[in-house]
Each structure stands twice: as C-alpha cells, then as structure tokens.
Design a binder for these strands. Sequence first.
DNA 1: CGGCGTTTTGAGAGAGCTCAACATCGGTGG
DNA 2: CCACCGATGTTGAGCTCTCTCAAAACGCCG
Lengths: 204, 204
Amino acid sequence: MPSQSRIDDWLPAAVRAAASERRLKAGEALFRLGDKTAGFYEVIAGRVRLARVDAAGHEVVLHVARPGDVIAEASLFSPHYHCDAIAGSEATVRLFPKRDVLAAFDRDPQAAQAFTAMLARQVMSLRARIEQRNIRSARERLRHWLALNAGGDGRTVALPGPLKELAAELGLTHEALYRTLAALERSGEIERLEGKIVIVQGRR
Amino acid sequence: MPSQSRIDDWLPAAVRAAASERRLKAGEALFRLGDKTAGFYEVIAGRVRLARVDAAGHEVVLHVARPGDVIAEASLFSPHYHCDAIAGSEATVRLFPKRDVLAAFDRDPQAAQAFTAMLARQVMSLRARIEQRNIRSARERLRHWLALNAGGDGRTVALPGPLKELAAELGLTHEALYRTLAALERSGEIERLEGKIVIVQGRR
DNA sequence: CGGCGTTTTGAGAGAGCTCAACATCGGTGG
DNA sequence: CCACCGATGTTGAGCTCTCTCAAAACGCCG
C-alpha cells in the first residue's frame, strides 16, 4: 500500500540509525502471533503477508505489505504480536526496535505527535480506499481514484508504477483496468501520456 | 465502521466532559474543506458523509460515518479540515474541542499514548477490511469476516446489528448476503441463532 | 536474437447486482 | 382488536459486468 508518507517524514533520525535489516526467504516467518514484540518493520523489498489462522486451521490474510509499507505499528503498545508475518516472496525488512522508538517519543514529544498524526492520516487514507472498494463499476472506481489522486491542478495524475500495480491497488484485474482506460480515452474523458494521465473533462 | 473500540476507552473523562452535542438536518454541513478545525467528532446518530469535490464539480465520497464512529481525528494536527462533512440524514454529533484534547494529551502522556495506540489498532483493522474486499466471492468474503470476528472460542460470532448493516460492511447487497448465509446454513457450515452465528465446521 | 514482464485485445462464463414479490415483526392509530 | 405502515428478512429470475483463460504485440536487457 503506497502510504504516500515516507517513513523519514515522521521517524527521528536517531531511531532510523538504530534500525537493522533482515533478509527473509519466501515462506519464512518474520514473527508469529504471540511472539514478544521487537518493534515495527518497514518492508524494503518483496512482500510480507500478515495473517491469522482461524479455528479450522485456515490462514486468514489481514494485509499484504509491499516495499515502503510499515507493518506492526501497534506492536509499540503491545507486549506481543497479534498475527503472523510471513514473507510472501524473498524479502528484506528493516526493524525499528520498540525500545528506541518509545525512548525517542519520550524524549521528543514532537516526534510522538508526528507519529500520531501520520497514523491519523493513514486512517483517513485507508477509509477512502475502502469507500473506493464500495464502487462496483470499474469505470466509476477508476474515476474515484483519479479524482482523489489528481495533482494540484485537479487534472493530472502521476502514475506511481506499472499499470498492473495500479490494478491491484484498485482491486481490479489488469485486463479490466486496461479496457477501462482504453474506453475512457476513446470517449475523450482522459488522455494517457508517459507515466501520467490527464483528465480532459469530467462526465456530465 | 464498527471501530470495536469505544471512545471512552481512550479519551480521558476530562475531555469527554468538555464535549458538546450538535444536531444536523439531512444535507446540512458539519464542516467544509478549508474551515478552521474545531476538533474531532463522534457520530451519535444518523450518518455523516466525508467528501471532496473534484475538478469537474462532482462529489467524491471518502467515508460514510455511522453511530459510534469518530471522524476528523487528523484535525488535531491540522489548522483546517481536509474535506467536507455533510449529514446524510438527520444526525447528531458530539464535538471534542481540539484545544481540550491537546491540552489533555499534553498533561497526560498516557492519554496521548492511548490515542496513538487506538489509531494504530484502527489502521490494522482497516487494512484487514481492505483485504476482505479483495475477495470476490461472497461466500469467501463472509467466511473471512466470520473467521476474523469469531469470539474467543473461534466459533461464535455476535451480530452487531441488522443483517442489512452487515451486508454494507461486507460490501455486498443484502440479497447476496441472505443467500450466502442460507447456503452456508444449508451446507451445515454455520448455524444461525438469535443475534449470532455459530461456525459449525470449516470447509475441508 | 531470445527471454521476460508489461500492455492489449478477444471470447466466454460465472457471480453478484437489479428489480420484484412476498413474509415477518413491531409499532401506531382508528 | 385489527388494519395499516415501515423496516428487516427472504426468495426468484434475468442481466450486466467483471473475471478467467488465451493469444499476441511491445519494450527492455542480457
């Protein structure tokens, strides 16, 4: 999930310096439900899956974290992890030790507040994403995303990566997204340029 | 959104005492994008819609808050609101003034931490909800929800309200939910009782 | 040149949505 | 006491839309 907020924006340099990296093989567990919390992690490369196991023994996925995502923020306030974290592919993560983070927050209330503010923004952004998923139509869902991600001019949207990734973020198959983009372009509603989309006109 | 965390759990009594209620008519604005932030709100009754207006003048809904939900938490850290809040029906809200809340957090770091912890939990829960929406099949989506909301025994799920509301939370039409529930019950996977669902057996 | 991943387009099928009818329950008022 | 009303719950039938499976063009890099 593109948190659109770099970790450097809210984490003091002192804490970043205390971080350590770890490499995981596909299928390897970063932590398990009930493990003592070491701190929270940033995913550097690969995918990490957060999941629980239900009463019938089946895995229930809570979240799939991608590079740039932070996981287990709540571990700061809990003595043990609340789910499993498993590498979905070969992956690299960076650990920010709970002790150092909490100490920094204690020492520097502004840092603590920045962290809280970041979480509040993330709640906003996640809610918006859920709202987006309430939209059935691929076309409307794309329009919603375009409107929400339009730059300052309200007309230009920068594409963060390949369209396949955008499709995943939108909860569409890539085929559906390609078709919808093509349809919107044919109808003259958008224009597709290198790495960005320009909204020509809203629908009437 | 059933935050599953009562506001009383993390907000000091002193702040709760400073709250004031406000009644809104359907369509009335609680605040508008750019307004100076007064604080955050709890929805007591009715529905409040958070939305922005895109370049073409169309409303883009970010979130629909229901009774028990808290909105505009990020207003604590921002001088102005980032979207419009409009009553979707006759509604009652409770305002927690920014000044009082921040003062309480200043005075009582534990309260501030409780707030942060609550946000971190909410981020978790929202991510899980998004993951749920990635599931196409109504049956699998319901199973996901059941597994995640099962009580301590992992077999009993209390229904928070009418099934229509659950349908909305799951992102399904109420018809689809009724049919899926009926199918799961016919197949013996679940049992439906007054106000709750019992998971009889997982699928093989 | 020969892979490999992304981007595109095609055709078919399944699943949930829409529209519709009806049952049920609680409250309200004649 | 009963008729009426609104909201929830339930089931039926058809239709649309996206998913799925396939195939191919394109671009990049060794």
